[in-house]
Structure formats: C-alpha cells, structure tokens
Design a protein around this nucleic acid. Structure first.
Lengths: 332, 332
DNA sequence: GCTGGACCGACAAACGTTTGCACTTTAGGA
DNA sequence: TCCTAAAGTGCAAACGTTTGTCGGTCCAGC
C-alpha cells in the first residue's frame, strides 16, 4: 500500500472526469450504466475509499459527534456509551468515544483536540469548571450529562434523586437511625446533588447523617469508606456509586463484618456485577442507556438547526431503588 | 452560534491575510509579536476552532485511528479499549471507538464508514470473513486482535493458550476425569483456538471432553450451558468466557448445584466482577490492556511508514490461570 | 430536414487549511 | 551611499471532494 487512491486516480483509470466519477459512485442514474460500471470497476481495482475529510471540508459537516466520559472502565459509562451509540447509529452518525480518566487536564485537551473534527460533543459527568464549559459551549454544540451549566443554553441530561431518597426511606423504615454517606469526587456535580438529597431526606425523617467526605469513584477507594463508616457507628452506609460499594463490601468481608446484619450497604447505578456480590447489592437503578440516548438525541436536535424548546432543553430522568440482600433491618 | 468561525474570519478581524493568521497560530516566531497578539485576540473573540478536516485534506493525515470491538458492554473489551487509549494519547492520536454489537453486518458498515476518516483501524475479535478482512487490509492499514488473517501482511495481536492448558491441568490434578467445554460464537477464531488447546490437553492427560457447542459470549447464554454440562455428567465446566461462566453460576445456584463440590466452573478473561461471585470465579487472566496497547503500537508503527520486521508482526501475549473458589476437587 | 428535449459527460468553483515563493520594509555593514 | 540580509507579510496553489452549469450527442416527432 503506497498511497491511498483518490477519486482522480479512479477517474483516470476509468477514462472519465473526476466529476463523472463522483456522480457514478453516489448519484445512481445520473451517468450511463456502462460508465457507472467502468468507474465502479476502477474504484474496486484501486481499493478506493472516499476521503471523509475532503467531503467534510465541502459540506462543513463531519457526520461525527464525540462522547467524552470520565472513566470507560466504569460499567455505568459503558452502558451510557451503548445507549448513545445505538441512537446515533440509527441516525447514521459516527461516534467518537474518549476516556479522560477522571483528569480535568486531559478532558480539556481532549475536548480541544476533538472540537475541530466533530459536529458536536456530549460531555458526561464533566469535571471542567463552569467557565470552561460555557467557553466551549460558545465554540461548538455541546450537551452535558449530569452537570448543570451556568449558561442555560447548553442542553443537559441529568438523573433524578428519587432513588437515593427512596434508599434513605427504605433504611429508615428498617429502623436505621444513623446513616453514613460516602461521597464521590470533589468536582462531581452529581455527588453534590445526591448528597443534598440525602441530607434533606434524613432531616425530614429524623435520621442522623454522617458525611464521610469525598472518595474516588473506584473500587479501591471502598475499603477506606467502609472503615470510616464503621468508626462512626452508623448502621448503614450509603455509597456514592456501586464501585465504591463493592470496595466497601470487600473490606467488610475481610474484617468479618456481617452485611446486612451489622451494617447495611447501598450503592448507586446498579452496574453490571451489582447482583453478583454476596450479598447482592441494594442499589439505585439508573437508566444509563436512556441517558446516553437522550443526550445523543438532544445533540442531534441542536445540530439539525433546531432550537430546542426550553422544556426539552433540560431532561431529568428518574431513578429507582432496587432492594437486594445488602440492606436490611438495623441491628438493635 | 450561527456558523463556525473560520480562519478567514479571524484574519479579517485582525486585519491580516489568511496565511499570516495561520502562521500566527501555529508558527511561533514566524510573525511579529504584535500581529500574533492581534490574531490570537481575534481568534478568541470569535471562538475560532480550526477545522481538522481541512487540515487533513492538505496533509492526508487525520491523526485518528479507529478501534472496533464486538461488544463494549463486555468488560474484557473495556480494558482493551483503555490500554489502546492510553498508548494512543501518549502519541497524540485521537481514538474512535466503535461497538458493533457482535453483528458482522454492522461491522462491515462501520468499517466502511470509518475507513475514509481515520488513518488506520484496529479490529478486535473481528467477525468478518477472511476475504473481507484481506480486502480491507488492502484499502487501509489494519491490525487485528484475536484473529488470524490469511494475508500475513496484516499485523496481529493474539492471546496465548497457556491459561486454558493450565486450567485443564489444574482440573486433572484435582481428579476431574470428565470436563465439558461451553464454546463461544461460531465465527470466533479465539473460540476455535481455545477449543483446540482444550482438546489436545485433555487427550494428553487422558481426560474425557464433551463439547457443548456454541454459545453467545453473554451472561444470558450461561444457564443453558450449565444445564447442558449437568446433563453430560461432567464434573467440571470450562466456559468460553467469564460472562458465560457468570450465567452458568446463576443457574447452578438457582438449581441448588453446589460449586465447586458438585461441579467446578472455570471462566476466561478475568474480567471485572470475576472475584465478586460466590464462590469467586477461577478463570484465565488475559492482559487485556496490554493487548490494546500492543495493537495500537503496531498500527502506529505501520503508519510511521515502517515495515514491521516479521517477528514483530504477530504478537502472542501469554495468559495465566487464576485459581479462585469455583474450582476444586472432583466429586467421587 | 428541423426542432426540441432527454441524456450524458466535462469544466470549474468552492470548502478551510497550509506552505512555497515573492514582495516590501528595515537594519546593519562596508 | 549602496548592497545585503533578515524579518514580516501577502499571493496563490494545492489537498480531495461535490455540485451548478454548460455543451454536445442522439433520437423522436413534426
């Protein structure tokens, strides 16, 4: 393979002009069957692949959008990616997925690199600050997932707090009077929102709440959270997400703390594996595929020149509690 | 946002020519500091983002490669993606990830759509037939993971059979005389290779082997495999991958079959969650991140005009057995 | 035999960049 | 004062497409 064959090469080999070659390939009926055949043959012989870039430079459209996620190894984002992929494929849009590994610096670089080559960007759980976010919103069509943006023009998809509220109610109903909350990353907007909902619900139900501070949303941060929860004397641990809860379960098993008899554990996201643990994890189910699909849909709507009606600009999808074995009656 | 600002707009606003604007932005020192400053300012004001497509049309390089995987929700491929991402980011190459959902038709379409907009493609566990594969190999730089290709020019990264061989040996050492193998997808080259290795090793050790036929590499295909294994009277089940093993464990727990006392179960890949099950899954660890990274490295080498020395053209990475609780002594 | 139209193909412009070359201005040395 | 060099800037070509427009050929119908 020396050099990619170009349309000029194909035209030359078929003995026609470039424009005829172009039409032969994409405008069925515009050129005679005989010529079309010859051009097709030449294209096949040369292994011709049209350059999307050249096409884009003319049309101004790349037919590509980017989806930026903080951590692809988190099953939650996998599901989100798949939802987005499905929606986009149905609309003939190619999707670029970028994993920024929870690094705001990387995220900034990735967005900058992507901005020039895609028609729009979906940012999931962005760690960028508001200024950066609105700045990019001015440069390129943007949709953000699980973030609010000062600039209300930027469409958002968020997930509701119904699930965590239900989780606290569930614990209260089982006699828990003291709950510990293991928070997510400092820069996480959804942690903030989730935390507030927990605080409010606990206050409403008269349940004591201890905040255990921020944790990386990874399994290896779980053990510390478990230990911290034990120290507070709380009878239930509410974790920012399932990965954290997995890590906590690891640690509790290791130290011989019985779940849920001595400590109830509740996660968030209902990711792959949540039902594999022993006991299976009580958690909050999030329609991750829907989230991805809705975000993709919003971006496509914006790109289709459409101004979204303000009511559709901010979508909040409901979550619900899934009770499994890791939560139960409070120890007396 | 009406229309993306172009370099012409920036130049106009700064009162310079397009070429000067271009140089001011990418050729530090080539234009006077005062002009550079003015151009920068204009670019910021307009929210200018250079069009990667236009650049590509000149250079012929997109600075992008594609990674095509059969199923993004399979944690094994997630890890692979991350390995590739890391390697490529370090080399300033943008990565496009496409999930083809195990569909050869989709895969063909996706490859066709991608071929014109990326510099090269990594195909993981491709379900394409050999003809299609060599055809694309002529059109665009290709690297395939876990496939052989008739055309030895196409670089490959494969994973070894050390792990499954060790698994059979491990079972034999624990007194198992009859093992069942639940195979993967029909079109899967790695299933073929893995199966052969199991057949050989069983023959060598005098262990009876029953092949249970092909299964989708998903958790929901596991229960059928478990039932089939029980019917054969085998004392151990070797599953094509961990997802299948998870599903088998689900079913065995449901039907009250004790693992490993009545049936040993061994998976493959050591994906996220393999240590969460009860009992934890004995499986074969695959250096998935390495696989992704090596494939990316090979593609970059090819793109750098380099002919790979034949010795580097086909990389086979070793696998190893990880013994956990789901395998043990054969029932007597 | 002419006219009109259908059909087919080619020419050239345009998309947003980058870059080789040429031009102008200024400074510095002889 | 003149020459040379260097610095700074602009012109225009080129990348690979797509598409509006135009010209030519062929045939049917009068």
């Amino acid at each position: 393979m020396t050099r990619r064959a170009t349309l000029t090469d194909v035209a030359g080999r078929a003995g026609v002009s470039v424009s005829t070659a172009s039409r032969a390939l994409h405008r069925p009926g515009r050129v005679s069957p005989a010529t079309t055949e010859r051009v097709q043959q030449a294209a096949d012989d040369l292994g011709y692949v049209p350059s999307a870039a050249a096409r884009q430079v003319r049309s101004g459209q790349s037919g590509t959008i980017a989806l930026v996620v903080p951590d692809l190894t988190n099953p939650f984002f996998m599901a989100l990616v798949r939802g987005s992929t499905r929606h986009l494929r149905a609309h003939d849009v190619v999707q670029v997925v970028a994993d920024v590994e929870e690094e705001p610096r990387t995220e900034e670089q990735v967005v900058a690199a992507l901005a020039g080559r895609v028609d729009g960007i979906v940012l999931a759980a962005s760690r960028l600050d508001r200024a950066a976010l609105t700045g990019w919103g001015r440069r390129i069509p943007l949709v953000v997932i699980n973030r609010d943006v000062a600039d209300a023009e930027v469409p958002t998809v968020t997930i509701g707090t119904q699930g965590v509220v239900a989780a606290v109610e569930h614990l209260a109903a089982h006699g828990h009077r003291h709950v510990a909350y293991a928070g997510g990353p400092v820069t996480s907007w959804s942690d903030d929102r989730r935390h507030r909902a927990v605080v409010e619900t606990c206050a409403r139900l008269g349940v004591r709440l201890t905040a255990l501070g921020h944790h990386a949303p990874r399994r290896d941060a779980g053990p510390a959270a478990a230990d911290a929860a034990r120290r507070t004397g709380a009878t239930a641990l509410l974790a920012y997400n399932d990965l954290l809860a997995f890590g906590a379960l690891d640690r509790l098993a290791e130290t011989g703390v019985r779940v849920p008899d001595e400590l109830s554990v509740v996660g968030h996201d209902d990711v792959f594996g949540a039902d594999l643990t022993t006991p299976a994890l009580t958690t909050v189910a999030v329609p991750a595929e829907d989230v991805g699909a809705r975000a993709a849909a919003q971006l496509l709507a914006v790109l289709d020149g459409g101004d979204l009606p303000p009511s559709d600009r901010h979508v909040d999808l409901p979550t619900r509690l899934v009770v499994r074995g890791s939560s139960g009656a409070a120890p007396r």
